[in-house]
Design a protein around this nucleic acid. Structure first.
Lengths: 210, 210
DNA sequence: TATGCAATAGCTAATATTAGCTATACGGGA
DNA sequence: TCCCGTATAGCTAATATTAGCTATTGCATA
């Protein structure tokens, strides 16, 4: 297999050099470019034709998030791994939204870093543990949304509705009469201030009621 | 430092034994319990006082998701790592919602597994690469999810449907005949492989088609 | 104990949705 | 040029949903 071509964006000269050396020491990778700014990121990518981009997030000019966005617009399939000293939520989610394939902290030791890059080549999404934690937490956030005070039964029924079941199917699955399903759903609509199944499903999903 | 106490829930006897042996071979870990069902998960945790739980997700009785929920209600800080053969979205998000701290595939090789467990002890969130990918995709504006090849018009109509409009309202808003709306929606259902508005809305939202 | 709420069950009538067709017009590609 | 796909429009028949009611049971609690 050919060596994987990697380019680096980092404003710190020392770090740029060490990363480049580290990569070139690996039999399966090579650094084909190292730049101090992401301002001309797309041009650099076009010229160097890399298999992966290692992008510093905290650069004074041509910041890493923007650079990543632009690269991803032009080359959606090219993996971009972000590196940063900060693992605050803002940075992480900005990076993810910009399309980054992974998010590593700069303190990641060299051996780990290489391992993570290889994982990214295999289609994985390398993430520093603390980053993964934050990402997971995001999913667990209790929705700050208004509490609709649905009863347990109503939540059950709503869940089945969201899953695409008809009233009849819900009745069968819940072992209650069709008419009872109607009544539960009427109550649900009332509490959710909607009057159709589609609206209820929309609210249920977006506000994580199910 | 004391050995980390780990308990296992897995319905497969062979796997339970090998995991337990693997853990006991490590100088820094020990398996202090291995159970075939998560039905009495909380009781088992109370009795064995583990530092971590390794939970199989696909167990016939006392399923892993429920077990995890119950454990997390009783012991919110106890790390629970899910293991499964499947990395489908449903499983992953269910597990995360249940409060799992990590999500590993069963095909993870032993050395990697131990490494990931240690990461979890350090407060990280071990995730198999493909799982991390799916989690990240969830955040992105445009996920690379299966393309249903909806035409622009169909996307418009679907959007209006998701917003809770009836066929009539969609017709009015789009300045086309009611019958045309019917036909677009028929096409959409065909492409999305569903046959009701609720299912279409669910897919549209979860896969960010709108 | 009286009250209220959740869950159950039922009915009817008005609408809405879904599936099955046919059919025309327009544009792009083989 | 002919064919295909998209957008448009139409019809019918079968189902499903929604809104309007009433009513019983059981449980919690004021």
């Amino acid at each position: 297999m050919n060596k994987k071509r990697i380019i680096i964006f980092d404003d710190d000269t020392t770090r740029r050099d060490s990363l480049s050396m580290l990569l070139n020491m690996c039999p399966d990778m090579e650094c084909v470019g190292a730049f101090a700014s992401a301002a001309d990121a797309v041009t650099h990518v076009a010229q160097t034709e890399p298999d992966m981009v290692l992008m510093d997030i905290d650069m004074p000019r041509g910041n890493g998030i923007d650079g990543t966005s632009r690269i991803k617009s032009a080359y959606p399939l090219l993996p971009v791994i972000m590196q940063t000293v900060f693992d605050d939520n803002q940075n992480i989610f900005e990076a993810i939204k910009a399309g980054a394939n992974g998010y590593l902290l700069k303190k990641t030791p060299p051996d780990k870093l290489l391992e993570q890059l290889r994982e990214a080549f295999d289609g994985g999404a390398p993430m520093t543990g603390t980053v993964a934690i934050k990402v997971l937490q995001f999913f667990r956030e209790e929705p700050v949304s208004p509490s609709y005070k649905l009863s347990e039964r109503e939540k059950d029924i709503l869940k089945l509705l969201v899953e695409g079941h008809s009233y009849k199917m819900i009745a069968a699955k819940s072992n209650i009469a069709y008419y009872t399903v109607c009544n539960h759903i009427k109550k649900i609509y009332e509490k959710l201030h909607v009057n159709s199944a589609t609206e209820a499903v929309k609210i249920a999903i977006l506000q994580r009621l199910v």
